[in-house]
Design a protein around this nucleic acid. Structure first.
Lengths: 145, 145
DNA sequence: ATTTATGCAAATCGTTTGCAAACCT
DNA sequence: AGGTTTGCAAACGATTTGCATAAAT
């Protein structure tokens, strides 16, 4: 499975005229082995020896190539996770308003379908072109309670 | 209705030991008469002569008193809207990935109920305490297409 | 050899904050 | 008066960028 992720990353970067360097591979590996989206400080801690500016730059490259996805919350730091089609499944986020931590959860497929149908209806009514829906549950995580 | 908003704002600020000053009232009025969440630059344009730092400070005060709600997207600027219980209805956001603009939309009540039920189930399973759910449709607005 | 990635340090820019004057009650 | 709010300017901090060196092809 990890091999497949790297193969796909290589392909997508190449399609964007970019190389899959050691640093970029390290970032993808760190994200692939994490159960939750990671901030840049967290990535700096795990992946030894990559400069902060390189992490920022490489994540930007990986995002443009659709290898990773950037998550922005009310927290001070942005978070990154692998693109959904590089992991098993479509999912959503539980966001702790206290510590900023983000974890994943999934919805029953039937409910996802209803959401997509509702989104399509809204798109039709408003002229908005909808690329994706994003559902967040905001609250307090077990650790902060 | 606008009177009710100001009355509620006064009460909530007082409960938090704060005054409903002219500047704060102007911000609430601007948000109440807008159909969409507004950024600080937008509020500075509409509002009369309130300094930027005062706008930031007052919005922070109004947010602590639960009079306004802060919306953070991938855009450079945060956006503010009146707290949901000061307006008519629970709603969600259409976010333009191109220009950052945010507009409102609503979901059928039945679907909202299903989302709440699913959220409750996730909360039970994860130990997370869920305060609210937030659904965004990300795409391209009619103007940017 | 030429192009691209890296590390370091400096710059950027939305947001926050210190402080003295203006405002309320 | 006593406390709060305001405006201005300076500070803050996550992210971006310029540039010289190192790595890759």
């Amino acid at each position: 499975m990890a091999l497949d992720v790297h193969a796909t990353a290589t392909a997508r970067l190449r399609a964007d005229g970019q190389r899959y360097t050691t640093g970029r591979r390290a970032l993808v590996t760190a994200l692939a082995s994490s159960e939750r989206p990671l901030t840049i400080p967290q990535l700096l801690d795990t992946g030894k020896g990559l400069a902060q500016s390189s992490v920022y730059r490489n994540l930007a490259v990986l995002e443009r190539a659709a290898v990773v996805h950037r998550i922005v919350t009310a927290d001070d730091f942005a978070r990154y996770e692998l693109a959904e089609d590089l992991t098993e499944h479509h999912h959503h986020h539980l966001i702790c308003a206290r510590c900023g931590d983000v974890t994943d959860f999934t919805l029953p497929g039937a409910l996802e379908d209803e959401l997509d149908a509702a989104a399509a209806k809204v798109a039709r009514r408003t002229g908005f072109s909808v690329d994706r829906h994003q559902l967040d549950l905001v609250g307090t995580c077990p650790t902060c309670r």
